[in-house]
């Protein structure tokens, strides 16, 4: 991939486009929870966890995110749009300093919209839904980042124990759960038919196809 300007699916040959369609169709057959399991499994510290446990955590975290819809926010983050996302494999980014800012990578978003059209997934991802979901995803990070009680509630819901001494118990952090919370929030608040993680996986396939082309 030499640059974001050339990141368009028109560049792909007919055969490669068909292969991409087939790859994404296979992805679409997986359940939304399975994408959550995969995300957790790829997150360090979960190398030895049983798939059933990861499945439970993925469901709990996604539901927790969906339950945050409507939570009051004192201030919206600043939004900055920039290119170069395809090259960096980024769709959006949240940074808390110097001021809470959501960076949206316009080239990745455009590629995502093009891909949704190519795959006929408009039913699940309406026009402009990816941008809205990206904003919502990063808003969820802002919500979690600024609210200790919310983070504690998430830990309690996940129910993972770091240390237990008799009745005394310290709940453990589940790495990656906050990402699933953000995806759950984005899907619920923007009315997506499928998890944003499905589109993320499809986009990754598209970027790979463009790089190989």
């Amino acid at each position: 991939m030499s640059g974001s300007a050339v990141a368009t699916l028109d560049r792909l040959g007919r055969a490669r486009r068909e292969r991409l369609r087939a790859e994404c169709a296979e992805l679409a057959e997986l359940s939304d929870v399975e994408f959550g399991v995969r995300l957790l499994a790829d997150t360090p510290t979960h190398e030895n966890r049983a798939p059933e446990l990861l499945r439970r955590w993925a469901s709990v975290a996604t539901e927790f995110g969906a339950g945050l819809v409507g939570e009051g926010r004192d201030r919206a983050p600043r939004v900055v749009e920039r290119a170069g996302g395809v090259e960096q494999l980024l769709l959006a980014k949240y940074v808390s300093r110097p001021v809470p800012t959501v960076e949206l990578f316009t080239d990745t978003l455009a590629l995502g919209e093009e891909l949704v059209d190519l795959l006929g997934w408009r039913e699940s991802y309406a026009d402009g839904a990816l941008r809205a979901a990206a904003l919502a995803h990063e808003e969820a990070h802002l919500l979690l980042h600024g609210d200790v009680a919310l983070r504690r509630a998430l830990r309690e819901r996940l129910g993972h124990t770091a240390l237990r001494l008799g009745r005394f118990r310290i709940t453990a952090h589940v790495a990656g759960a906050d990402e699933l919370v953000a995806h759950g929030y984005a899907a619920a608040s923007r009315g997506l038919g499928r998890s944003p993680l499905l589109l993320t996986a499809a986009l990754a396939s598209a970027v790979r196809a463009l790089a190989q082309d």
């Binding site: 499994a41 808390s96 953000a182």
Partner: peptide
């Protein structure tokens, strides 16, 4: 100084 950073990434570390 740098705060926290979360990225919605397409990278598959699997």
């Amino acid at each position: 100084r740098k705060g926290v950073e979360h990225a919605w990434s397409l990278a598959a570390p699997a």
